[in-house]
Design a protein around this nucleic acid. Structure first.
Length: 439
RNA sequence: CGGGGCAUAGCGCAGUCUGGUAGCGCAUCUGGUUUGGGACCAGAGGGUCGCAAGUUCGAAUCUUGCUGCCCCGACCA
């Protein structure tokens, strides 16, 4: 993408409503624009990051055997009356009426709807296990939205729902999502630690929150430092096999949120391994048994010929929140530092002297070669001062900056800078292209 | 939902106490000089001062009501 033809409104000053670093940087780098309290538009750069996160989440869900669907944002109140949650959910649920005065709501979550889909079609245990997920906008009318997209009212979430014949099967489904989450967050470039969590109003008796450590996190967390070094399962993990060893490796080390904190257990850990920190919840997995299947009548016939209420779990990832969480975990004074896997572009190609025939030709050539190699490039082809170009490129945080100016070109050289470390190398044009193609 | 704060040009702010017809920096546009880490000079455009009522000869400024947004707490992916 040529900068001259893109829409990338960056801000030099920090808007005053933004308090935490991720919110400031998201506004300054032109990722989002606030439209109302807790409601944001996603501008081109932010949209690309969001799409990259979605892509990785989707790949790992699919790998773990979950199947993608798409449910609507608007739901009928009737379904929620069946589960009893229409009255229980309270003011956080945005309730609206259509032109026929029918009661509707903007979905805060989808347990009822997915259970309705399930009960409409599935009759036999032979169709299980089943895990359906979607990535859709949710609305929760928070009393106090804050910190930009970290706690918005409208937010993008991946939510998966598993259906099994009995509890042991449901626990295996839980483990599959648990392992998928380990892989997902690792690929997104963040270290998310599963922690024993409170089950809250959704209910259930097995749940973990996946928490990214960050100083500005909303939750206090307590963990054994050794939990940070547990291994990430590989892409070749057999999801049809026994995942208990992987899950156990992560859950035997102490790691808990404030609500579930067990002081005695924590203090049993050698002092040098105790870590008290703050974190951002980016995902949560629940096993809640028949909490919804019983009231909604989601049952299958088992091998014994009898009907069984299905055992369910739900598994959420805060996709839009992750954009902020990644920035909280990965930035410096100059701006964002995107992990390569979700960066809006891999390379920022900087033309330091637009209008100079040699420099233009070299940049245009590099741009073409990189694009042909399948590398996503943001090409700053706008006539401007070097300092402004560098500052903007640092702000938006692309992993690589390829700096092309007349001085270097006189020696047939360009400069390649790695955003994360600030490390620079002077290379020939060919060497620079090869380096970027190699990753 | 309790407590606190803010609302003046695209962004950041001053002016409000003490009423007199709106200003600064950045950004934008034009011309010139510059040009490897947020340049300089000259000029220009851009505001029903959040909305509504009131007081007054006169309101950004005083009064009342409303709305929006932010922060702390409680609550939450």
């Amino acid at each position: 993408m040529r900068l001259s033809r893109s829409f990338l409104p960056t801000l030099r000053d920090t808007p005053k409503e933004a308090d935490i670093v991720s919110h400031r940087l998201m506004l300054r780098a032109g990722l989002i624009r606030q439209q109302a309290a807790g409601i944001y538009s996603w501008l081109p750069l932010g949209k690309r990051v969001l799409a990259n996160i979605e892509r990785i989440v989707r790949e790992e869900q699919n790998r773990a055997g979950a199947i993608e669907v798409l449910m609507p944002t608007l739901q009928s109140a009737d379904l929620w009356r069946e589960s009893g949650r229409y009255d229980d959910y309270g003011k956080e649920m945005l309730r609206i009426k259509d032109r026929h005065e029918r009661e509707m709501l903007y979905g805060p979550t989808n347990e009822e709807m997915i259970t309705d889909i399930f009960r409409s079609y599935v009759r036999s245990y032979k169709e299980l296990p089943l895990n359906l997920y979607h990535i859709q906008w949710k609305f929760r009318d928070e009393v106090r939205p804050r910190f930009g997209v970290m706690r918005g009212r409208e937010f993008l979430m991946k939510d998966a729902y598993s259906f099994d014949i009995d509890e042991p099967s449901a626990r295996r489904a839980y483990n599959r999502m648990f392992v998928a989450y380990l892989r997902t967050f690792d690929r997104l470039g963040v270290k998310a630690i599963p922690m024993r969590a409170d089950s809250g109003p959704i209910g259930g008796d097995a749940t973990h929150e996946f928490i990214v450590l960050a100083a500005t996190g909303e939750s206090a967390v307590f963990l054994d430092k050794e939990a940070l070094d547990s291994p990430i399962p590989g892409a070749d993990t057999d999801f049809s096999g026994d995942l208990t060893p992987i899950v156990s490796a992560w859950t035997t080390k102490y790691a808990a949120t404030e609500e579930m904190h067990d002081k005695a257990a924590f203090e049993a850990i050698p002092e040098e391994r105790r870590l008290e920190a703050r974190g951002i919840e980016v995902g949560q997995v629940f096993y809640f048994g028949t909490k919804y299947s019983t009231p909604l009548g989601a049952k299958v016939t088992g091998p014994d010929g009898a009907d069984h209420d299905v055992h369910m779990g739900s598994y959420g990832i805060g996709v839009s929140r992750l954009v902020a969480a990644v920035i909280e975990a990965s930035h410096d004074d100059a701006g964002i530092i995107w992990p390569s896997s979700i960066a809006p572009y891999q390379v920022g190609l900087i033309n330091l002297k637009v209008g100079d025939a040699n420099t233009d030709a070299a940049c245009d050539g590099l741009y073409q070669r990189l694009m042909n190699a399948g590398i996503e490039v943001l090409y700053d082809d706008v006539d401007g001062r070097a300092g402004v170009k560098f500052a903007t490129m640092d702000l938006i945080g692309l992993p690589w900056q390829l700096i092309v100016g007349p001085k270097g070109l006189a020696n047939g050289e360009v400069e390649l800078k790695r955003r994360a470390t600030g490390e620079r190398e002077t290379l020939t044009l060919d060497a620079a292209v090869n380096r970027l193609v190699a990753g």
